[in-house]
Simulated assay, not measured.
Amino acid sequence: MLGTSNSAATTSTLTSKKGPALALKGTGPVLSMGNSALIKGLNADLLDGRSASDLLPGSVLTTTVVTTSRGLLVDADGDGRADLGAIAECPAGLRIIGGGWTNRTGYPVSRVTVGNSDGKAHRTVFVSMPNAADHQGELKATAHCQGPLPAAARPRHHRN
């Protein structure tokens, strides 16, 4: 009966010759369980063939790399003068998801690049100024890196 509490001594079965045998509709949860028993065919331990431990935040490595400008003097703008540079490089296999720089030189940042070389993603920041060598340590590049955590480093989860 609909709208009242029901109970049965044996398993009840719904059948339909047209459409689904049961369609639940509502503004809140449409199905709840009165216990924690597993239901064959309803509970799942894999999603697209991946276990829950593969989907946990612990299976992703997120790190921030900050590099201070020391010794990176390059003519980045082609004006014949050495520009001060700082490069932040992600560990191999990780990608850059953000980043930035800190510039205490008193000169504006003239160039920012984000690239990939030797399998490592990097962010490079340059400041074009006179006497760049006198300002080493005043420019920092930051890269926020993310990627899969190597399988050996993933937390292990055991099922009972």
Rank of each mutant, 00 (worst) to 15 (best):
V30P: 00
L42N: 03
G26K: 11
G19D: 08
K17E: 04
A82E: 13
L14Q: 10
T10I: 06
G71A: 05
K120N: 03
R95S: 09
A21W: 02
P29T: 13
C90I: 04
D48I: 14
T105M: 07
G34P: 05
I96A: 13
S5K: 09
L56C: 02
V125D: 01
I39T: 13
A44M: 06
G58C: 01
D118L: 08
A52D: 10
S59F: 12
T102D: 14
A44E: 04
P148R: 13
K17F: 01
I97H: 08
T15Q: 15
S117V: 11
G26L: 06
K140M: 13
T27S: 15
N160F: 05
A86R: 09
L56V: 12
A143C: 09
D48S: 15
G19F: 08
T11V: 14
T102A: 15
N35I: 01
Y107K: 08
A88P: 02
V114P: 05
R70P: 00
L84P: 00
A141F: 09
L14R: 07
R50N: 12
A86H: 07
V125G: 10
A37D: 11
G80I: 04
D118Q: 06
T27M: 05
S69G: 15
K18N: 11
R50I: 02
N160E: 10
T11A: 15
G19M: 00
V66K: 13
T62F: 06
W101Q: 01
L84W: 01
S69C: 09
S7D: 09
K25T: 01
L24E: 04
R70Y: 04
H135Q: 13
R154H: 01
S16Q: 13
S12G: 04
A8P: 07
M129W: 09
G3R: 08
K120A: 13
H122K: 14
G106H: 10
A37G: 04
V65A: 00
A88W: 05
A44T: 06
N43K: 08
G80V: 09
V127S: 07
T142L: 00
H144R: 14
I97C: 01
G85C: 12
A121Q: 14
S12I: 06
C90K: 10
T64L: 06
A88E: 02
L56T: 11
M129R: 15
S110P: 06
T105P: 08
H122E: 10
D45F: 11
